Amino acid sequence: RKEMTAACTPRRRIINLTSVLSLQEEINEQGHEVLREMLHNHSFVGCVNPQWALAQHQTKLYLLNTTKLSEELFYQILIYDFANFGVLRLSEPAPLFDLAMLALDSPESGWTEEDGPKEGLAEYIVEFLKKKAEMLADYFSLEIDEEGNLIGLPLLIDNYVPPLEGLPIFILRLATEVNWDEEKECFESLSKECAMFYSIRKQYISEESTLSGQQSEVPGSIPNSWKWTVEHIVYKALRSHILPPKHFTEDGNILQLANLPDLYKVFERC
Score class of each variant (00 low, 15 high):
Gln58Leu: 11
His42Tyr: 03
Thr9Phe: 13
Leu64Met: 08
Glu119Met: 07
Tyr160Phe: 08
Ala7Met: 05
Glu72Ser: 10
Ile233Phe: 03
Arg11Gly: 07
Leu155Gly: 06
Val161Asp: 06
Thr59Pro: 03
Tyr80Gln: 12
Lys132Met: 04
Met4Asn: 08
Asn16Lys: 10
Ile200Gln: 03
Ser109Tyr: 11
Asp181Leu: 12
Lys131Cys: 10
Ala53Asp: 02
Phe97Ile: 10
Arg36Ser: 15
Glu165Trp: 05
Leu96Gln: 00
Leu39Trp: 02
Glu33Leu: 09
Glu123Arg: 09
Glu146Trp: 14
Gly252Tyr: 04
Gln256His: 08
Pro10Ile: 13
Leu142Cys: 08
Leu35Val: 07
Pro223Asp: 11
Glu26Asn: 14
Ala53Phe: 00
Glu217Trp: 11
Leu167Val: 05
Leu21Val: 12
Asp138Gly: 04
Gln30Trp: 06
Lys132Ala: 03
Leu172Lys: 10
Arg89His: 12
Ser206Thr: 15
Phe128Glu: 07
Ile125Val: 11
Lys132Arg: 09
Ile171Pro: 00
Thr9Trp: 06
Phe85Met: 06
Phe267Gly: 15
Leu172Val: 10
Leu64Cys: 10
Ser106Gly: 15
Phe187Thr: 03
Asp138His: 04
Glu37Phe: 07
Gln58Glu: 14
Thr249Cys: 10
Arg173His: 07
Gln215His: 12
Ile79Cys: 08
Thr249Trp: 08
Ser43Met: 08
Tyr124Asp: 13
Glu143Asp: 09
Ile157Met: 06
Ala55Phe: 07
Glu250Ala: 08
Asp138Tyr: 04
Ala122Phe: 02
Leu136Trp: 02
Met101Gln: 08
Val20Ala: 05
Arg201Cys: 01
Val126Gly: 15
Phe128Cys: 11
Leu136Pro: 00
Tyr124Asn: 11
Gln256Glu: 12
Glu3Val: 07
Arg269Pro: 08
Phe140Cys: 03
Leu164Lys: 09
Trp226Ser: 00
Asp145Arg: 01
Lys227Phe: 04
Asn28Gln: 13
Ser206Gly: 12
Ser191Ala: 12
Phe140His: 02
Asn49Glu: 08
Thr5Pro: 06
Phe267Lys: 15
Val161Trp: 11
Asp262Gln: 09
Phe140Met: 05
Ile233Ser: 08
Pro244Lys: 01
Asn179Met: 11
Met4Ala: 06
Asp115Leu: 06
Ser216Met: 14
Glu183Arg: 02
Glu127Arg: 12
Leu69Ala: 02
His40Ala: 09
Gly86His: 08
Leu150Trp: 02
His232Cys: 06
Tyr264Ser: 15
Asn159Asp: 14
Glu127Met: 12
Ser189Pro: 00
Leu211Val: 15
Asn224Leu: 13
Ala55Gly: 06
Gly116Glu: 13
Gln76Arg: 02
Glu25Leu: 10
Phe82Asn: 03
Ile14His: 10
Lys265Pro: 14
Asn49Val: 05
Leu155Gln: 12
Asp158Met: 13
Thr249Pro: 06
Arg89Cys: 08
Ala175Asn: 04
Asp138Asn: 05
Glu108Lys: 08
Val230Tyr: 00
Lys236Pro: 10
Glu147Arg: 09
Asn28Lys: 12
Phe128Pro: 03
Lys2His: 15
Tyr198Gln: 01
Ser141Asp: 00
Asn28Trp: 13
Asn28Ala: 12
Tyr204His: 07
Phe170His: 03
Leu167His: 01
Gly31His: 13
Leu39Val: 05
Leu155Lys: 11
Glu185Thr: 11
Gln30Glu: 08
Glu29Ala: 11
Thr249Phe: 10
Arg12Val: 14
Glu188Phe: 08
Thr210Glu: 09
Glu188His: 12
Ser221Met: 15
His42Ser: 09
Lys131Gln: 13
Asn149Pro: 00
Ser109His: 09
Glu71Gly: 04
Glu71Cys: 06
Lys130His: 08
Lys68Arg: 14
Arg12Leu: 14
Asp181Tyr: 08
Ser240Cys: 12
Ala7Leu: 08
Gln58Thr: 12
Val218Cys: 15
Lys118Trp: 03
Leu156Glu: 01
Ala122Arg: 01
Glu92Pro: 09
Lys2Phe: 14
Pro223Val: 10
Tyr160His: 02
Ile151Met: 13
Pro154Tyr: 01
Ser43Trp: 04
Gly116Ala: 08
Asn65Ile: 02
Pro154His: 00
Ile205Gly: 03
Leu61Lys: 04
Gln215Phe: 06
Thr9Glu: 10
Ala103Tyr: 03
Leu90Asn: 03
Leu156Ile: 06
Tyr139Lys: 04
Lys68Cys: 09
Pro162Phe: 01
Leu23His: 02
Gln76Asp: 00
His32Thr: 07
Tyr264Met: 13
Ala100Gln: 00
Ala175Lys: 06
Phe248Lys: 01
Leu150Cys: 05
Pro10Cys: 08
Lys132Gly: 03
Glu177His: 09
Val34Gln: 11
Glu26Phe: 05
Ala175Trp: 12
Gly166Gln: 03
Glu3Ser: 12
Ala6Cys: 11
Leu243Gly: 03
Leu23Thr: 02
Phe128Ala: 13
Leu129Gly: 01
Glu114Trp: 06
Lys68His: 07
Glu185Ser: 10
Arg201Glu: 01
Phe44Tyr: 04
Val161Phe: 13
Tyr235Asn: 01
Glu143Met: 06
Leu39Ile: 08
Trp52Gln: 02
Ile222Leu: 14
Met101Pro: 00
Pro95Asn: 14
Ile171Arg: 02
Glu143Arg: 07
Leu150Lys: 00
Val87Phe: 15
Gly220Lys: 12
Asp145Val: 03
Glu250Cys: 08
Ile233Gly: 06
Pro117His: 07
Glu250Asn: 08
Asp251Ser: 12
Lys68Pro: 00
Ser240Met: 13
Leu17Arg: 05
Leu104Asn: 00
Ser106Thr: 11
Thr66Pro: 01
Thr59Asp: 14
His40Phe: 12
Ala100Gly: 07
Ser191Tyr: 01
Ala6Asp: 05
Trp226Asp: 00
Glu92Ile: 09
Ser221Gly: 15
Ser91Pro: 14
Ile157Cys: 04
Tyr198Met: 04
Glu165His: 06
His57Asp: 08
Lys132Ile: 02
Gly120Asn: 08
Val45Arg: 07
Gly148Ile: 03
Glu250Met: 06
Lys246Ala: 13
Tyr80Thr: 13
His232Gly: 03
Gln214Met: 11
Phe44Cys: 00
Gly86Tyr: 08
Ser240Asn: 11
Ile151Lys: 11
Leu35Ser: 14
Gly31Ser: 12
Val218Met: 13
Leu156Cys: 03
Met196Thr: 13
Lys132His: 08
Glu250Lys: 08
Pro95Trp: 06
Val20Lys: 02
Asp138Val: 05
Ile27Gly: 01
Leu155Phe: 08
Asn16Asp: 13
Gly110Lys: 13
Thr229Leu: 06
Ile79Ala: 04
Glu71Trp: 05
Gly166Leu: 02
Glu72Arg: 05
Gly110Thr: 11
Ser43Lys: 15
Ile151Asp: 06
Pro10Gly: 05
Pro154Met: 01
Glu71Tyr: 11
Leu255Thr: 13
Lys2Tyr: 10
Glu231Cys: 03
Ile144Pro: 02
Trp226Ile: 03
Leu211Phe: 13
Thr9Leu: 14
Thr9Tyr: 06
Ser240Leu: 14
Ile171Ser: 01
Glu182Thr: 10
Glu29Cys: 07
Asn253Val: 15
Asp105Asn: 12
Arg11Asp: 07
Ser141Pro: 02
Asn179His: 11
Val178Gln: 00
Glu182Gly: 08
Asn28Gly: 14
Leu190Thr: 05
Gln256Ile: 06
Thr67Gln: 08
Cys270Ala: 14
Ile79Asp: 01
Gln51Met: 15
Asp115Gly: 09
Ala122Thr: 05
Lys60Gln: 10
Ala103Pro: 00
Pro154Asp: 01
Tyr80Ala: 15
Ser240Tyr: 09
Gln203Val: 08
Ala6Val: 07
Ser240Gln: 13
Pro261Val: 08
Ile151Ala: 12
Phe170Asp: 01
Glu268Lys: 06
Ser199Gln: 00
Tyr75Glu: 02
Met101Lys: 15
Leu21Trp: 09
Thr66Ile: 01
Tyr264Asn: 15
Tyr198Cys: 03
Ala83Asp: 04
Glu92Lys: 15
Val45Ile: 14
Ile144Asp: 02
Ile242Phe: 09
Asn49Gly: 11
Phe267Leu: 15
Leu129Arg: 01
Met196Phe: 08
Pro93His: 08
Leu243Val: 11
Ala83Gly: 15
Gln24Leu: 08
Val20His: 03
Thr9Met: 14
Asp251Arg: 06
Asp145Gln: 03
Asp251His: 05
Gly148Phe: 04
Ile15Val: 15
Met135Pro: 04
Met4Glu: 09
Glu188Tyr: 13
Gly46Asn: 15
Val266Trp: 08
Leu17Tyr: 10
His241Lys: 09
Leu35Phe: 11
Thr249Asp: 15
Ile200Arg: 01
Ala53Cys: 07
Ser19Gly: 05
Ser212Phe: 14
Lys68Asp: 05
Pro95Val: 09
Asp115Lys: 09
Leu17Ala: 05
Arg1Asn: 14
Leu88Trp: 12
Arg12Gln: 13
Glu146Lys: 11
Glu29Ile: 08
Gln30His: 08
Glu268Phe: 04
Glu165Asp: 14
Thr18Cys: 06
Tyr198Lys: 01
Lys132Gln: 09
Asn149Arg: 07
Glu71Arg: 05
Val20Arg: 03
Lys68Ser: 09
Ile254Asn: 01
Leu172Gly: 05
Gln256Leu: 12
